[in-house]
Design a protein around this nucleic acid. Structure first.
Lengths: 206, 206
DNA sequence: GACACAATGTGAAATAATTCACAAATATGA
DNA sequence: TCATATTTGTGAATTATTTCACATTGTGTC
């Protein structure tokens, strides 16, 4: 079912989800692809094409049922079941992400945070018990964690990523500016903050 | 010169830049599109196509001069001149970004940070003087700031964005999960942390 | 200098993503 | 019930991006 679905489509699905969530609170019962598209400043055909990957979810003449569509998307994206994650590297960014509420709303639960500094482990950071990175195998196994958010300094990125892979992590959200070299089996997604800012400034006013 | 250049190309340019910077430190004089491509796990033709948007930068037979290419990319991306930015919203994420070193390496200088809380303004946060958001017009004018990093809570995002636009901000790096509605003139780039994590988990193991 | 090898630059081809456009289904109102 | 409106779902067309493939240029060796 999730074969050949463009990444962009998955991303938009989440944007649809957020609007549907909001619309439901407003008491909306139905919505057309046109209205949803207008809210996001995209084309209505884009909305319909995206949704069509997952079946015939709408009704000709009246559009989509807001509640049913929201729940369907929640199901497609797995928002309806909890996914455990850990954060590795408790510097400024790691700590900020530990406190970030946006993950919870999408079904993510931060189960553990790791660092390599004796000063930090054993203590609580943003309410989470901080563990020694070398204990990771034990803790991710005990807690069924498959996803790690990597926020260590660039110098430590590659070696830490290898530790994560060995420990059984299947996907890494990589906030370091390092191209991680791991087996094809491990899924990596890069969030490069400086790159985003540079791209923005390049196209500014264009 | 920067008309019709794909955003993806600009992003890769920065990745090339980082590797060239590193290679130069290693003492490399020349590099082929093939070697550079292999480091990034992309195709060599992609590297050449990307660079070809900006002229004939290589030399047949021997490849690209590392120093010259690095400097050319720095020039294209404007890394060689400083760009002033501000951060708006000094919660966890805003504070973490204020301390983030990666911006500096690309020519960005954080000039001011803003918040709306009396507890915060007047004080220093991560070494930066925190100002009242309502003073923004004055401060961005005085300091020639055209770019803002927006890290306020979702509820305050749209109203704050309007303030930024009114004050003369031309580009916003938006970390809130809100679709900002501003004039076409203002360039917006969205960094949606929860979306990145959800996309990653969707494709995990696929 | 001539020959073999290396590597670019770039049209053309292939692939991917978006948008169009319209038949089909549903809704609405007289 | 019938005519008209709406709105989906989806092939086809378009547009964007990547990859191919090769002529051309430069390098190194004898």
């Amino acid at each position: 079912m999730r074969k050949g679905i463009p990444e962009k489509t998955v991303q938009r699905l989440l944007l649809y989800y957020r609007y549907l969530f909001f619309l439901l609170q407003q008491g909306a019962k139905n919505i057309s692809s046109k209205s949803l598209a207008d809210l996001l400043e995209i084309k209505d055909s884009q909305v319909r094409k995206d949704l069509s990957y997952f079946g015939q979810l709408g009704k000709r003449g009246s559009g989509y049922d807001v509640l049913a569509l929201r729940d369907k998307i929640a199901n497609i994206l797995g928002i309806d079941k909890e996914t455990n994650v850990c954060i590795v590297g408790m510097g400024n960014l790691g700590s900020a992400l530990a406190a970030y509420k946006g993950f919870l709303a999408l079904g993510f639960r931060i189960i553990a945070v790791f660092d390599n500094s004796k000063q930090k482990f054993g203590h609580k950071i943003k309410g989470y018990q901080c563990y020694d990175i070398n204990q990771i195998s034990k803790i991710i196994e005990e807690n069924d964690i498959k996803i790690a958010i990597l926020t260590v300094p660039a110098e430590a990125a590659q070696e830490t990523a290898i530790k994560l892979e060995k420990a059984g992590i299947k996907a890494i959200l990589n906030f370091t500016p390092v191209k991680l070299s791991l087996s094809k089996r491990t899924k990596i997604s890069n969030v490069d903050l400086a790159l985003e800012l540079k791209t923005l400034s390049f196209f500014m006013g264009k």
